[in-house]
Design a protein around this nucleic acid. Structure first.
Lengths: 243, 243
DNA sequence: CCTCCTTGCGTACGTTGTACCCACTAAGCT
DNA sequence: AGCTTAGTGGGTACAACGTACGCAAGGAGG
């Protein structure tokens, strides 16, 4: 009858009112999960390993988390917990967007499992909500509808996240300008070269040939792309909003 | 000594030269996998279920595929196999981009597991490569560098894919303009409402309040966002390329 | 015919998520 | 004080998973 039986994790109180005081907490568990996922990937993440990392019994985790999905939710939200990448200067509209984008991108690059886990970890956690609030507050201008505001923020973040995801994929395939990932197998490299040499994919061939002579580094290329997107948004919004 | 022992699946010949003729083929297996993933999600996809769907023994699949990862690669590439969404009219530059974007978006909306599987299925398959070739051919213009071309295509596709992924997430959370997904649990809805009512997230509150009165449908909103992105690209490219 | 490669597939093993149970602890009540 | 009770950490157990291995059967090349 307590009412919090079937609630989402964010509605369940972390600290109990009675009984033995817990030996761990959600933040520690999330951090352990992040550490393991960073080291061995999301596939290598198991409840047993997280428990071992904490020095706890496997089933003890289930006192803090109802399922592995909830652990992922904790991990995802903990990544967003760092408020230092939140906008400070509210006057530079495009600058705020750029900051959001950079934050999203580095989150993905630092934690390649992040976008995958986000898909499984369903409702947005408090850190995510707070981050959205800050961004929307920073971008709020008279004349801008709330749903446009939301749309703009999610568009930019989505773009940055997707772009970063692609950067990782391209690195793995040996395409693009970034360095070829060390995880790329010999067989994968051979495959790409073979495809390029087959003559069936002329553009791919040219791309691989050029990839050896990068024109600019990955960061600059991201900034350029991001500017395209932001400029597109600016052009539309400036029509009826004073930035 | 045959040499194809440790190769990527796309370099291994599908048809053997000798021995019993296979009872199944890669396309059928991929289709079975897609059917199951569509029905029960990527988590519910197992080698046993795919085999059962085909009426085959579980281990028989491993005659066609070396691992579950390779099955995912087959599935992902089979989604891209439909050439009817490929550009036909090469003159309308922005139109080609729009077509790519729409194709990417509907792939995600029709197969929500698609972006997740793409991450695991490492090297791009032949259908993916062919699709990229077609798009780049359609967008190729004198003055445009090959890496810019590639960048533009991936940017637009990435954007569309990420946007669609977000659409699904928002539907699940009951935000945005789309219909609330039927998979959303009572607890999740309660959570969002509770957060909105808490007063800590004023923008979220306004958003949820407005979400009940959608201004435009999801397709139109996507098109609007897409136009922002494309316009941004156009503005830059037009400076030194004749479209 | 024989030979040998390749097939389909049963069995088996290690790992996973997690349901269930127990002994124990500490706060609140009498 | 003791009793109750909600909470703890964690061991055991089980179903489902990916897949290594091995074997009988079949079809092509000699």
């Amino acid at each position: 009858m307590s009412g919090s039986e079937d609630e989402v994790i964010w509605l369940r109180p972390e600290k109990p009112t009675r009984g033995k005081t817990p030996a761990y907490n959600r933040a520690d568990i999330a951090a352990a999960g992040v550490r393991i996922a960073d080291a061995v990937g999301l596939d290598g993440l198991s409840m047993r390993k997280v428990a071992a990392e904490l020095g706890a019994g496997t089933m003890s985790l289930y006192r803090y988390v109802r399922s592995k999905d909830e652990l992922l939710a904790l991990m995802v939200d903990s990544i967003l917990g760092d408020p230092e990448s939140w906008p400070g200067d509210y006057r530079d509209w495009a600058g705020v967007l750029r900051l959001c984008a950079h934050g999203s991108r580095s989150a993905v690059l630092e934690h390649p499992w992040f976008p995958v886990a986000s898909v499984y970890a369903n409702p947005p956690g408090p850190n995510m909500l707070r981050a959205m609030e800050h961004m929307m507050a920073a971008l709020d201008r008279p004349g801008l509808r709330i749903d446009e505001l939301f749309q703009i923020v999610t568009t930019v973040m989505t773009f940055a996240q997707g772009y970063a995801q692609n950067e990782l994929a391209e690195r793995a395939a040996g395409l693009g300008t970034g360095p070829v990932e060390e995880t790329t197998t010999e067989a994968e490299k051979r495959y790409m070269v073979r495809m390029a040499e087959s003559g069936e994919y002329p553009y791919l061939s040219r791309l691989i040939a050029e990839a050896r002579t990068p024109h600019q580094d990955a960061d600059a290329q991201f900034d350029a792309m991001l500017d395209w997107v932001i400029e597109g948004i600016l052009a539309r919004v400036r029509a009826y909003v004073d930035l």
